[in-house]
Write a protein that binds this DNA or RNA. Structure first.
Length: 193
DNA sequence: GCTGGGATCGCCT
DNA sequence: GGCGATCCCAGCG
């Protein structure tokens, strides 16, 4: 919608600019939506990025134009969701690490296999991690390469965060000390404060 | 055709 | 805080 492209010029700035954006997914099951509260930047010259050693069949979406979804499989059981940034051919993007659930809470809970328990017991764990939010939002490998500017899976401006924290990334070995993780301070739905 | 790494999660103590 | 689950894909040959 609108022109979200102008915040996707490069992974570093987009990682903070995307905080407060709303991620929406319309599926046959229903609509789910959440506000982006935590991200990580993966630039083309970053040893921790999938694109660091050049283009392959797996990562080729990241070398495409900005504004597309890069969905990949990891650890034998999880998928993660990135938004491609930068110029075509660069190979950079933003990993979406956590959402604050806004719409379709019941559907998220169903997809995350929380049943017969009150929402207070699961609200904070619905989307507080990259693989969790992919599951809750119903994002699959079929979404790899799709535009997230228009269509059933898309982002829209939503809120302006009061304060953004920049710190080191999580769960990586290479370039682990680089401060490329961003989150909204005091938000209850981040994966790790 | 085999090998091993990997941007995780949930359950156990 | 530690660990097991579990599988795609790249790289080598």
């Amino acid at each position: 919608m609108i022109n979200a492209l102008n915040v996707l010029n490069d992974a570093m700035s987009a990682s903070s600019d995307l905080l407060g954006y709303k991620l929406i997914h319309e599926t046959a099951e229903g609509v789910t939506a959440g506000m982006i509260v935590e991200t990580e930047a993966y630039s083309h010259n970053d040893a921790a990025s999938h694109t660091f050693r050049g283009q392959t069949k797996r990562n080729k979406v990241m070398f495409g134009p900005a504004g597309h979804a890069y969905v990949y499989f990891t650890y034998g059981m999880h998928h993660c969701f990135n938004i491609v940034t930068g110029l075509k051919g660069q190979g950079q993007g933003v990993l979406i690490r956590a959402l604050e659930p806004l719409e379709g809470i019941g559907l998220m809970a169903k997809r995350r296999s929380f049943k017969d328990v009150p929402p207070t017991t699961y609200m904070r764990s619905l989307c507080s991690g990259p693989a969790k939010l992919v599951q809750a939002m119903g994002i699959t490998k079929a979404d790899n390469g799709r535009s997230i500017l228009t269509g059933q899976l898309r982002i829209e401006p939503y809120a302006t965060p009061a304060e953004i924290v920049q710190t080191t990334r999580i769960g990586i070995r290479k370039a682990a000390d680089m401060p490329f993780r961003f989150y909204i301070r005091d938000n209850l739905f981040v994966s790790k404060p």
